[in-house]
Design a protein around this nucleic acid. Structure first.
Length: 271
DNA sequence: AGGCAGGCTTTTA
DNA sequence: TAAAAGCCTGCC
């Protein structure tokens, strides 16, 4: 079916943004996107038109996933080219990035896995974990894929099976997060009721989750758009471009969206 | 108390 | 060989 989108929405830029690790480019600009036990095939046709191949009644679900109720063009237009030329250029150059509404559990595990690794390595480990513990599913085109594993399925893996996902020392962090999800220490519905500060504190209580990974879970998993993950790239950006400080107050409550524009811009510049 | 150095698995360039 | 969307531990 055809979906019309009257806002910033660039599949390639989202796929490269580093917020999701299971999108798969299938040629002809078509992405296969797993979500739970479903899969979407989507392709941009131009002029805000997108070709979607998904379940009959799943369109609303995917519109939610892509956060289509939020107006990113308005967020993007906020930085003033005169007072903040750097951010204005980042936002203009990276137009089309959106913050997906992903499964918070998948986001948590994925970003625990992400520490001290580059994106290809992260994708590999996540896929291995899905194959090891996820449910075997078939998509609408008859192709097999694996769902992202539930905490219980991860806990059921032997140490050796977990090691085969190439997680290294992060394996015990992933296991601890799964245990916390099982015993209720990690509970996303209750995290959503907390203030951002309280959610951050609760997340950093998890073994292997520091401030950076907690911010990523808040931004990409809890959709707290003001969360501002500071990784090696963003740390360099703040040092190089904002030696006198970054105006967080001015860009609240969308600091996380601007972080994404800057992160993508710097990465493109470096490549 | 809070900051800092060193170590950690593995992959990528 | 260094760096990679970092965090933990031990030491001061």
């Amino acid at each position: 079916m055809i979906m019309l989108v009257d806002d910033d929405f660039d599949l390639d830029r989202i796929a490269e943004s580093g917020q999701c690790f299971r999108w798969e480019l299938r040629g002809e600009g078509t992405y296969r996107i797993p979500l739970g036990e479903r899969c979407l095939y989507i392709r941009a046709l131009g002029d805000g038109r997108f070709d979607l191949d998904c379940g009959e009644n799943d369109l609303a679900l995917w519109r939610e996933y892509f956060d289509l109720k939020e107006c990113y063009s308005a967020i993007r237009a906020r930085p003033d080219p005169r007072s903040d030329p750097f951010l204005a250029e980042c936002a203009a150059s990276e137009r089309g990035i959106r913050i997906l509404r992903q499964d918070p559990w998948e986001v948590t595990v994925s970003f625990i896995i992400s520490q001290n690794r580059n994106i290809p390595a992260i994708r590999r480990s996540v896929e291995l974990l899905c194959r090891a513990a996820g449910k075997s599913c078939v998509d609408g085109r008859g192709e097999a894929f694996y769902s992202f594993p539930e905490p219980e399925a991860i806990l059921a893996l032997s140490e050796r099976e977990l090691n085969e996902c190439r997680l290294g020392y992060r394996g015990r962090y992933v296991r601890a997060a799964a245990a916390a999800a099982m015993d209720g220490t990690l509970d996303f519905p209750s995290l959503r009721t907390k203030t951002p500060e309280a959610a951050r504190d609760a997340l950093t209580e998890l073994y292997g989750v520091g401030i950076k990974v907690a911010s990523c879970i808040q931004l990409f998993g809890l959709h707290q758009l003001d969360a501002f993950p500071v990784d090696t790239w963003v740390r360099r950006i703040l040092e190089n471009e904002y030696p006198d400080g970054y105006p967080f107050e001015e860009y609240s409550p969308y600091n996380g969206v601007y972080q994404q524009y800057m992160f993508a811009f710097y990465r493109h510049k470096a490549l």
